[in-house]
Nucleic acid binder design. Structure first.
Length: 571
RNA sequence: GCGCCCAUGGCUCAGCUGGAUAGAGCAACGGACUUCUAAUCCGUAGGUCAGAGGUUCGAAUCCUCUUGGGCGUACCA
């Protein structure tokens, strides 16, 4: 089904062509959702921006556009307003029919170029360090963006670019060889690795030579030293299996796990190519790429003086690999804001190397706790296991209170969906660029603009449907939805415009647009629900109202699904 | 020093890349459960959008400067 905006744009274009046949600057013709319902459904400021070109006052242009709009069955009226806006009011019948069609038809996003592959790099934990809350943002935001891109119709590959080849291995090997607690390692390998990592940091502060040793050990890994390679492999296996448990728990799936080690063998060739193309030159013993002065970027080291590769090298290798193995549309990177400069450098180098594709760094704000940035070394992290447990138990206590008669396993499932939903939503519902100071209270809030609130509305609709079924009423998806009140009109319009908000979310990589939209929809539904009887209405009215409620529920479910949040049938 | 991000009611945040009277949620206050789940709903109160200039029909949004915060700045990722 065509988006409403696209439908309307076509009409508008026809109208403009009629009054100004030579006009071609269609980029100017922007249709926006109305800022207030009293201004209708959509508005355009075209008449104002075109005023200079057409050499006429905005209001005159607006008037002639309105009269030139071809006959159609979607528009109730169009009005000139304020300094020259044109406000468009859609017919109730058209909006209602659009809502009804959402039950059987998919939205058509063919006006967006989705050709080729989109690779999205997110989560990407550092192997051998335990994941903590700090890793949650990239994971949750990345997963949501992946879902959104897929919904639009992109062919998406979710890539977990594991940090499995970096400095931490050198440090860990040094620590492992010196301070390993064998018993603990066998019992709980992850926590022993964490202990060793922290221990190394503490020791290195007293003895800076240790860092040098660590670098040497890392180099040995990268050069294929057997003993070190075996240790490396062990560390990777241990942490990766732990990470995968977390992903499974969160309902997050990756298509590829091409970590840095995967690209290692490609790196020398990347370096060769950069040197060949005159991009990388030697400086102070290292191999470095310099940038044009106007870029305002500091030089980027692609090979250390000891011959080892780094983060930049592996990212460049990744890009070259993508360029050669996929028909790339976009390469997306979801990492925190502090890496912005790194990606500017990498993208600039890749472009100069001729690895053509669209690069987007999708940054998010840094997560802190009590004002301090979370660091494994500082020991101020919140363990994911604790966070998840807390989320579930809070969910459990509410379910227990509201629905004690449900079977235990269902209560458990609901508790998890609600608790984890609240957690994910607290992050996804705000603009990703803001820095967040983690708060238990906020992360696990169930009231107001939260996932449980949205899930609750969904569950209420399911409950109505169950009650209807008990009464022997069957849902007829072909029957008409009749808009009988302002609130119903408002709800229907919100549902019909939902895909446009997904489109916007995809364009700007901002899941919070979706959260905003469904929250607004659900608030309206709350008003409707509390003021309008459904099951006690006359048969025809009842059918129409149930369908509208069902459309709300389906939109909420779709929206929450795009955020990676589940919708239980009861709660 | 240079660069990036940020500043919106008491608190936490939206604000769809310049639109009409700046919106929510918490918290506060007053109302609504013999009625489809009160994890809800209705209402009241609360703002010089950090400050000053500029751009224009029109600025929280764009430009410049100032103040105050966060971050990054060649061998970490």
């Amino acid at each position: 089904m065509e988006l409403l905006r696209i439908r309307l744009e076509k009409l508008l274009k026809e109208a403009v062509k009629t009054i100004e046949p030579d006009f071609e600057d269609w980029g100017r013709l922007v249709l926006q959702p109305a800022t207030d319902e009293k201004f209708g459904d959509y508005q355009t400021n075209f008449a104002m921006t075109a005023s200079k070109i057409f050499r006429q006052p905005p209001k005159i242009i607006a008037e002639s556009i309105i009269t030139a709009i071809p006959a159609n069955d979607i528009l109730e009226k169009a009005e000139v307003a304020g300094p020259g806006f044109i406000n468009f009011f859609l017919k109730n019948s058209f909006v209602a029919e659009t809502v009804r069609k959402t039950f059987s038809e998919k939205w058509d996003f063919s006006h967006i170029n989705t050709e080729g592959t989109v690779v999205i790099d997110y989560s990407s934990p550092n192997i051998a360090k335990p994941m903590h809350v700090g890793h949650l943002r990239t994971t949750i935001i990345g997963d949501s963006i992946k879902r959104i891109m897929k919904f639009i119709g992109y062919n998406v590959i979710a890539d977990n670019h594991l940090g499995d080849w970096g400095t931490q291995f050198g440090k860990l090997i040094v620590a492992y060889n010196r301070w390993l607690d064998k018993e603990n390692f066998e019992k709980d390998p992850i926590s022993e690795l964490e202990r060793l990592y922290i221990k190394f940091g503490d020791e290195a502060e007293k003895d800076p030579d240790l860092d040098e040793l660590a670098r040497a050990e890392l180099k040995k890994v990268q050069d294929g030293d057997e003993a070190n390679l075996a240790l490396w492999k062990k560390f990777v296996e241990i942490t990766l299996s732990e990470c995968k448990k977390i992903y499974e728990y969160l309902g997050i799936k990756f298509d590829t796990y091409y970590g840095e080690s995967f690209y290692h063998k490609l790196m020398p060739k990347v370096i060769d190519e950069l040197v060949e193309k005159g991009l990388a030159v030697e400086s102070e013993g290292a191999l470095v790429v310099f940038f044009d002065e106007k870029e305002n970027l500091h030089p980027c080291i692609v090979r250390k003086k000891d011959g080892a590769f780094l983060y930049a090298t592996s990212d460049l290798a990744t890009i070259k690999f993508k360029y050669e193995n996929y028909k790339m549309n976009k390469a997306l990177y979801v990492t925190d804001d502090r890496q912005a400069v790194h990606f500017k450098q990498i993208f600039n180098i890749a472009e100069r190397a001729g690895w053509k594709m669209e690069f987007v760094h999708i940054p998010f704000g840094v997560l802190s706790f009590n004002g301090e940035i979370l660091k494994t070394r500082a020991g101020n992290t919140i363990k994911l296991a604790d966070l998840f447990k807390e989320a579930e138990s809070k969910g459990e206590s509410v379910v227990e209170e509201k629905n004690p008669e449900l079977p235990e396993d269902e209560k458990k499932k609901i508790a998890k969906a609600v608790g984890i939903g609240a957690l994910k939503y607290s992050d996804l519902s705000q603009n990703r660029t803001s820095n967040i100071d983690f708060s238990w209270e906020k992360a696990l809030s169930f009231d107001g603009n939260t996932a449980p609130y949205l899930q609750y509305s969904y569950a209420r609709v399911q409950s109505i449907k169950r009650k209807a079924a008990e009464k022997g009423i069957t849902l007829d998806f072909n029957s008409e939805i009749k808009i009988e009140s302002d609130i119903e009109r408002s709800i229907a319009a919100s549902i019909a415009k939902f895909p446009e908000c997904v489109e916007k979310a995809a364009e700007l990589y901002k899941p919070n647009f979706i959260a905003d939209h469904i929250f607004d929809l659900v608030q309206k539904f709350g008003t409707f629900y509390n003021s309008t009887p459904i099951l006690k209405a006359e048969p025809e009215q009842m059918q129409s109202r149930i369908l509208l409620a069902e459309a709300v529920a389906q939109t909420v479910r779709t929206g929450l699904d795009l955020l990676g949040i589940e919708t239980p049938e009861k709660m």
